[in-house]
Amino acid sequence: MLDITLIMLGAGDSTRFGLPVKKQWLRVGSDPLWLVATKNLSGFYSFKDVIVVSKESEYMSSFAPNYKFINGGQTRQESLKNALSLVKSEFVLVSDIARPMIPKELFNKIIEGAKQADCVVPALKIADTAYLGEEAIDRERVKLIQTPQLSRTNLLKQALETDVTYTDDSSAIRAVGGSVWHILGDERARKITTKEDLSRLNLVSPSLEQFVGTGFDVHEFAKGRELWLCGEKLEFELGLKAHSDGDVALHALTDAILGAAGLGDIGELFPDTDANFKDISSMFLLKEAYKKVQSVGFELVNADITIMAEKPKISKFKRKMAENIAVALNLTPNRINVKATTTEKLGFVGRGEGIAVIASASLKYYDWTKI
């Protein structure tokens, strides 16, 4: 048995994918696509290590504690070099999380080819006439290169120590004089690049599970500040003390949405020690947090907000507050509920010293089958 480490590359931003969700976070059943792809390949062999490269490596690690995770770079090559720094095995198998259906037959052929060259590469032939610009070219000489690719680790590390950018491992290996062995690829190993590619794969629909999060926040009144609640400016002699604009209701809602997705809290994303967030709009922070939640595969089902304040009176603003949030999150207002209450003169709220808010939010998986 060969000494092999598996590297799964998934640090891209899915800019060509055309959906609010990164393709690596589309749910197949309950699992994100990156986990489906990794489980698929890692189930074929007893790898020394399984390394997943991502821009959300800390978050990913909560899904699969038995894998190793490392942050990616700005390019595929940078991401691969980061992962190779952890590799101690003689061989490394590099694949993309965007190829979730790699068949075992293809994997076996790659492993069997290890003795043939320094790098084993699956490649597809093309059946149609091919042109390069305005010139017809010999299609027999054209190959569509796929992953996974199996390489000798030390040679691949050496090959990537350059300023030249390579789009796959075999190109880098060949550039330093290494040998490359092509095997026949497989249509099932085609890469997901755009949303249209999803229809070519027989993937399970997302689970119908829902996830609930809660948020709670408190701010004291302060002179010389504007009072903002749910994105609505209220005419009142006092505002709320805060690093941002002090919209305590949106802070609680942001925490609820982040909590439902397991993404921490507002203070982690937008620390009050960062001058960039000084007096910033809390509605902007809510929208940015929700974009992050969407990018990892969720969408908001509904939210419920309870504002606790003795003053000012909020009842007449509730509908407009709900509309503000709905517009910001691209939802219909019936998905957002805003309530107001007092604490019957009890506690710091009852004494008119500040405002407290509790919020809850429910999320579901983004349903890519309906695009």
Rank of each mutant, 00 (worst) to 15 (best):
L2Y: 15
L2H: 15
I7Y: 08
G10C: 09
S14G: 11
F17K: 01
K23H: 00
S30F: 01
D31I: 00
G43S: 11
I51D: 02
I51K: 06
F63P: 08
G73R: 14
Q74E: 15
R76L: 02
L80E: 14
K81I: 14
L84N: 10
V87L: 02
P100N: 08
L106V: 03
I110F: 02
Q116F: 15
D118I: 06
V120K: 09
A127S: 13
D128G: 09
D128P: 02
E134A: 12
R141I: 10
R141G: 11
L144S: 10
Q146A: 06
Q146N: 07
Q146I: 09
T162Y: 04
T165V: 09
S170F: 14
A172D: 15
I173R: 08
V176I: 15
G177C: 12
R188I: 01
K191E: 14
T194P: 04
L203C: 09
E209C: 01
G213T: 06
T214G: 03
F216N: 12
F221H: 06
W228F: 15
L229I: 15
C230G: 09
C230W: 04
L238V: 03
K241A: 05
H243D: 00
S244F: 15
G246Y: 06
L250W: 04
L258T: 05
K287V: 07
A289F: 00
V293I: 13
V296W: 13
D304Q: 10
E310P: 10
K311M: 14
P312E: 00
I314A: 03
V327F: 02
R335V: 05
T341H: 00
T342P: 00
L346I: 10
G347I: 02
F348S: 07
V349P: 03
V349L: 08
E353M: 08
T369D: 13
